[in-house]
Every structure is written in structure tokens, then in C-alpha cells.
């Protein structure tokens, strides 16, 4: 089935299309960001991803394969020595297509095609990356809290305690409460646990 496969001729013959995609790939590897039409950006994105995957392998076969596509020694050097290593920690998704605006002349939909790891990252991007890194470290603590709260809250007996919990820890959202209710049937836990957890929170 061809579900969601990108098959487009780009209104070009095969050789023309091949050359056009190569030119775009050359553009994005040298400049790290290009502006083209949306369709062209998507096609170029696909092939650039493939070539970066090759560049991460860093063996002679991969180099020759890339040479057969690009035929630009300097660029291939950059690809294998700068761009490839940059994506070492990323599995796929090396390029990003952002819808931009319509072209004045013909109303074509323009898109920005860029590498996800760029040489000069914007301030927002670096901040976001830090956030993601910190998030991946933290959740262990949060998860523990959530599990304890899910143990604590289901008891209908101590409504007062429940209210205290809510006041004490604003972090616990309604979702966790719902989870707790769903878990309630399974648990035959008791007040002792509740009191323990309350103390923990305090």
C-alpha cells in the first residue's frame, strides 16, 4: 500500500528531479537551512535524512555511497566530520520542515527546511534542550510521588485527609486522582499507608 508515502514527480523528468534534489541537499548541508516550496522541502528532507544516516556509519562503503550521490569532496568531508557526529545521539529526524508563507509570484506554499542540530542554535532551542534533559532526569521522583498519592487518595473514609493532601501538594492533578480511583478497586490498602505518605509529603 502506498499509505502516506511521498510519491511526487515535482513536475520534472527523472533526471531533472534527481538533479534538483541533489542541489537542495547540497544547499541544506552547506547552509543548514533553506527555503523552498513545501513539496520540494519534504522530498529533500527524506533524502537528506538518508544521507546523514550514511554519514553516521563512517566506513568506506558509506563514504562511497555518499560520493555516488553528492560528488562534492569538500561537502562530503563536512558531512562525515561535522554533521554526522553532531547527530550521534539522535535516531532519525535529522531535518525539520516548517511551513512558512506563500510566495508572492505564484502563491506557492513555502517551507523552511533545516537541520535539527545546527551549528549555531538559537537561544530558545538551547533552553528547550536543557529542559528536555532535565525532564528526563527528574520524573523518577515525580513518579514515586504519583504512585504514593494514588495509594493515598482512594479511601472514601478519610475525606479530610484527602483534602489535606490536595492542599499540601498542589502538584497532584486531577488526572492522578482519576488514576487513583481506577486503581482503588485493586487496592485493599489502609490508613497506615495514608499517614505515612502524609508525613512524607510534609
Amino acid at each position: 500500500m502506498r499509505h502516506r508515502k511521498l510519491n511526487t514527480s515535482l513536475n520534472r523528468t527523472k533526471s531533472h528531479r534527481k538533479a534538483a534534489v541533489k542541489n537542495m541537499m547540497r544547499g541544506i548541508l552547506t547552509n543548514e537551512r533553506i527555503v523552498t516550496t513545501l513539496k520540494k522541502a519534504k522530498v529533500a528532507s527524506k533524502w537528506t535524512d538518508k544521507i546523514i544516516t550514511l554519514s553516521k556509519k563512517n566506513n568506506l562503503a558509506a563514504i562511497r555511497k555518499v560520493e555516488s550521490i553528492l560528488q562534492d569532496k569538500d561537502l562530503i568531508y563536512k558531512l562525515f566530520h561535522e554533521i554526522g557526529p553532531r547527530f550521534a545521539d539522535r535516531n532519525g529526524g535529522y531535518t525539520r520542515v516548517l511551513k512558512y508563507k506563500t510566495r508572492r509570484g505564484d502563491g506557492a506554499e513555502l517551507a523552511i527546511l533545516e537541520l535539527t542540530e545546527r551549528e549555531v542554535m538559537s537561544i530558545e532551542e538551547t533552553e528547550r534542550k536543557k529542559k528536555v534533559e532535565s525532564k528526563t532526569k527528574e520524573p523518577s521522583v515525580e513518579q514515586i510521588e504519583q504512585t504514593t498519592s494514588s495509594l493515598a487518595e482512594p479511601q472514601p473514609v478519610d475525606v479530610a485527609a484527602k483534602e489535606e493532601n490536595e492542599v499540601l501538594s498542589k502538584e497532584i492533578t486531577e488526572e492522578t486522582a482519576e488514576d487513583a480511583q481506577s486503581n482503588a478497586a485493586e487496592k485493599d490498602s489502609d490508613n497506615s499507608q495514608d499517614s505515612q505518605e502524609e508525613t512524607e509529603k510534609k
Partner: peptide, 17 residues
């Protein structure tokens, strides 16, 4: 929707252009 803001150049919380 799903396009870079042409007034401030932001998309998905970061400056694009």
C-alpha cells in the same frame, strides 16, 4: 495554523525567522 507567525517569526515556542 501550523505555520510560522509572520508577525513575530515564532513557531512552536522558538524564534525561526
Amino acid at each position: 495554523p501550523h505555520r510560522i507567525c509572520l508577525d513575530c517569526g515564532f513557531y512552536a515556542g522558538r524564534k525561526i525567522v
